[in-house]
Design a protein around this nucleic acid. Structure first.
Lengths: 155, 155
DNA sequence: ATCATTGCAAACCGTTTGCAGCCTT
DNA sequence: AAGGCTGCAAACGGTTTGCAATGAT
């Protein structure tokens, strides 16, 4: 049986294997689907897409696979829509850090639907000021930006 | 028929009336409920709470009422949970501005569940830098912070 | 009296749990 | 061979739509 796997799926499968998880067909299919899509997908949408391509996976299994992937920081979940997004490899170091700091920064293009993780270097300072001013203790933060990406803005 | 209404509900009802909406019992009840709760409520939870208090409102109506309230910036919706929150009157000027700028800043205490709108004065600058750096155009943003509020942090 | 608004019915989407059986290891 | 993982069944929570009846103006 053959699977066309790319960088992200390969990496994620390696991580799972290393953690003692088994490499199953449903896991492969979900990871490949995440690899192909830049817009983020809900578990339910994943099921529909796979089904359209003749790949039958039970929706329940997708939920459980996603759960595992989230646990090991291999996918992001958008607060607003609940959609899931592969954790980009080029952002890996940032991503891992971001995950451990429980922070998530996303930019969503309302024109083309593309989602990108963004790095927001000064945000930590802004939050530190806020913490001091309000006497609160911030452990996690999520920032979701919407607008037009470079291509859609210029075009 | 009597209703114990406070500042928020009174204000919101006045806004609705001024916009040509009718003042109905379900609308009053939802607004009073929002007034009483600081933690945010989902439409469904509102129905349950009202039912417990012997006030029967159809869940469908609650959804439609919320829709109207959102349209006129009388409630906020939390990205993470989808729960709804009254738009605080003391924050009104900020709130109106925030709404028109499509920005939402919330702090959620993970200990006591309280939710507060926060003012994040330098965030706009941070985003402006990001826009310039990435060539993107940001039209809305949502920031959700989690941690311990002053009381829970100290205590 | 008018027509905005609600309640009811029904369907739908999305998610979760338990259990039996399969398939990776 | 063992047991992690999946598929199936079923139930639930939450949301949405259409239509008839109600009630605020």
């Amino acid at each position: 049986m053959w699977f066309i796997v790319g960088h992200y799926a390969t990496h994620a499968l390696a991580v799972l294997k290393e953690k003692g998880y088994r490499i199953t067909k449903p896991r492969r299919l979900v990871l490949e689907l995440l690899e192909r899509t830049a817009e983020g997908l809900s578990p339910y949408e994943m099921g529909d897409l796979l089904r359209e391509n003749g790949q039958e996976i039970d929706t329940v299994s997708i939920y459980r696979i996603i759960e595992t992937l989230e646990k090991h920081h291999l996918v992001h979940r958008l607060l607003g829509s609940g959609k899931l997004l592969k954790c980009h490899l080029e952002d890996e170091s940032h991503c891992e850090k971001a995950q451990h700091d429980h922070c998530h920064h996303f930019f969503i293009c309302t024109a083309c639907g593309a989602i990108q993780e963004v790095h927001c270097p000064n945000l930590q300072e802004v939050l530190a000021v806020l913490e001091a001013a309000q006497g609160i203790h911030i452990t996690e933060h999520s920032l979701e930006l919407r607008g037009q990406c470079r291509a859609c803005y210029v075009g």
